[in-house]
Design a binder for these strands. Structure first.
Lengths: 165, 165
DNA sequence: AAATATTAATTGACACCTGAAGTAGTTCTC
DNA sequence: GAGAACTACTTCAGGTGTCAATTAATATTT
């Protein structure tokens, strides 16, 4: 213990010029861990709600949400991009939803490699019901945050998102 | 600035209050989606780096990071809490790390139900190496964001985190 | 002290997710 | 127009994650 500290102290003079950078190290890591913690908690809450209220999961909800915004249907590859997951994953989730009759795979006559995935009528109904509640959950989760702060967050996170293209 | 606020306060009829709520719906959902998008991208980058450089994974790194901060060792249940995952999950990750000789399960003679999980010497060495690079990755990912904005984000996300326990 | 409840960790079933390899259909190139 | 390259999707293996049920040890109750 004491040995460790001594060693660290010996190195300190060198690091001194870089104190600001060193602090930034900690700042960036701290920011990252906090982002992760927040996201995980919210995600976990949403996930539990989806399970409890609709016996479904976040990825399924997410896929259906993408389809709802694209009534003409989406290719598997487009779903993959928009959901930011791999193609193999989309195949699995789509299989599940198709088996439950919530989505449909339609072949493209012009290119028989391609599927267009669409919400079935039943899928549309179910998604609508879920979407309403989902919005409510998110609002409740963020209810303690002022509109001003929410806007600031959207702004700052936008900067990060842009930085990462 | 102050004038703006006053205006908003003066115009308080029903329609207006509805508008504010309606906007807030969108605002909250938008904020949530943006948080998720940012986190996913960063997480994905870190994950890829861990895989490419050290042939390991984020959960493993995360578990080792927890242990590094607690040289006396942690119970499975403590790990579970700190990592915000279920106990069964911790069992699996610990099994993997133990098999590779990076962590050790020590029985508590006072209560034979509990294990104290610790980093092995090899685990410590490996974690150190990973931690240095990991910090570097995070810093690079956030390099385009000013210190001021990072601090703001830490602050605002702290508010959210607090709001959610 | 025996019956009961509680607690710590594991197990098993199932879903998610990735990366790499495989299949089938399309396009390019000569 | 036949072979090579490319593209869309699927499959597979392996790690991650949840929940519910189980096992084993400890606490509590009577």
């Amino acid at each position: 213990m004491a040995k460790e500290k001594k060693k660290l102290r010996l190195v300190e003079p060198l690091a001194d010029a870089e104190t600001r950078i060193h602090d930034d190290h900690h700042l960036s890591v701290r920011l990252w861990l906090r982002m992760l913690a927040c996201t995980n908690r919210i995600e976990s809450a949403v996930r539990q709600n989806l399970q409890a209220r609709f016996a479904t999961t976040l990825p399924r909800f997410d896929l259906m949400a993408q389809l709802e915004r694209a009534p003409q249907g989406l290719r598997m590859s487009e779903l993959s991009q928009r959901m930011m997951v791999t193609g193999g994953n989309v195949t699995g989730i789509t299989d599940g939803l198709e088996k439950e009759g919530l989505v449909i795979r339609e072949v493209d006559p012009a290119d028989r490699r391609v599927f267009y995935v669409k919400l079935s009528a039943e899928g549309q109904r179910q998604f609508r019901r879920m979407a309403v509640e989902h919005e409510q959950w998110v609002i409740e989760l963020f209810q303690g945050i002022s509109v001003k702060h929410k806007n600031q967050l959207v702004e700052l996170l936008g900067e990060i998102k842009q930085q990462m293209q």
